[in-house]
Design a protein around this nucleic acid. Structure first.
Lengths: 233, 233
DNA sequence: ACAAAAGTGTTCCTCATACACCCATGT
DNA sequence: ACATGGGTGTATGAGGAACACTTTTGT
């Protein structure tokens, strides 16, 4: 038996919401579209899934092609949008992905993109397609996710101070966190961070201890218990 | 501009994980497949998305066709599986959905299904395709979801006792919950349940007060704060 | 009278919050 | 010396866990 002829064959794309924290602000990776529809507009990087390609492979390929960004970082599926009323070309399904990445790589435009760069999410204009909706869902997911998983650390360099990690939480949540209590909570949560022994100088004030994510922890599925709840709003 | 010819056109299906609580146990709605592949095996209800159909519409249609179950209940998208290595017919994408429903409807097989019925999740054999994986993901989602949303109430009849609601939590979480503290927590959480004034007799012991979900609450997006955390395990 | 389930009161303890205070560095 | 950020100690309060106890029904 094969696929019945009544089955809808649907073009499938992947879109990637890559988030990072830059200058204390939550930023998203956007490209400027070269082609119609929405040529010249800002959009999430993404494109059509190729035959014999998995969804995460397509997401990573499109991200590399259009922005030059190659993880490390945490990639997970967000949700699927469509197929109706989201693309002027017709019914197209988009499987959106969320990537949490450190901010140390510089985007390089390529493929169907004329520009690629990080944009603060607080000052965005309109985006192509339904990408504004997808972005909002992605931010909401990220806000929830860092409460009960160590994923915030994937938006920091390999070695980071507690203050850098706190800046991630503050940027993602959009609210301030008490530095003293945050420090205790993070260092007191087993399986989150371990000290490297080193200290990071640089700024004024006492140099902070450098940490990395705890050994054997896959930020993908580790769980913080009790979670690090943000204040209700 | 149209969809480029290189774009992979992929057959897209929806699968539905319908969960309910029956006899104090978490149950899933399964059908026995009439057609190949996996003819004669148990599977999640589902099927191909039709042209000009949204994903939730396809999910509800397939559910009705194969099992006769028509919500009410809470339907949400779970995640998308595929397109590789999950269907012997070739690359097929499946958008899985989660339905939390009360147990008061009797499934009626139809369409491509020869049987339709509720099955306790604790005593399942193999399922067709990757449906065992999808089911596990759905249960995990349900377990998390009822912690911070009033969705457990959608698995109860329109009017229910606190004990019935507690049975839902115990079945989904697979752990006992203290009846006294649970009662206080539920009735003390604003925007969860409101009393109907009525009392439900029936069993032995003092008759329990009947509740319904609070007015103006859409269980879809209401949030419980603080959440009702299950014990860590 | 007794069993059984509903519902309330109370105690204990964990943990979040708030903030005083000390530490280590740059200027 | 002083400013600045890192890090520790500690008091207070909210809420979860545990459980004694009362209430209201069926048998």
């Amino acid at each position: 038996m094969t696929v019945p002829p009544t089955a809808g064959l649907v073009p499938v794309t992947v879109d990637i919401v890559a988030l990072t924290v830059l200058n204390g602000e939550l930023n998203v990776l956007l490209v400027r579209r070269l082609l119609e529809p929405f040529a010249g507009d800002l959009a999430l990087p993404g494109g059509f899934v190729l035959p014999n390609e998995t969804l995460p492979a397509a997401a990573l390929r499109e991200l590399d092609e259009e922005t030059g960004i190659v993880p490390p970082g945490h990639l997970e599926q967000l949700r699927t949008y469509g197929p109706l009323d989201r693309d002027p070309r017709g019914p197209i399904l988009s499987v959106a992905h969320l990537l949490l990445a450190p901010a140390d790589r510089i985007p390089q435009a390529g493929g169907d993109a004329t520009e690629a760069g990080w944009h603060p999410v607080s000052t965005l204009g309109a985006l192509a397609f339904d990408h504004a909706t997808i972005l909002n869902d992605a931010i909401e997911r990220a806000r929830n996710k860092i409460e009960y998983s160590p994923l915030a650390a994937t938006m920091c360099p390999a070695e980071f101070t507690i203050a850098e990690l706190r800046a991630v939480y503050e940027a993602v949540w959009g609210q301030n966190v008490d530095p003293r209590n945050f420090h205790r909570k993070i260092t007191g949560t087993p399986g989150f961070v371990t000290s490297t022994g080193k200290r990071g100088g640089g700024g004024t004030g006492r140099p902070a201890e450098l940490f990395r994510v705890a050994d054997g922890i896959s930020p993908h599925d580790a769980v913080l218990y009790p979670p690090l709840l943000r204040r209700s709003m």
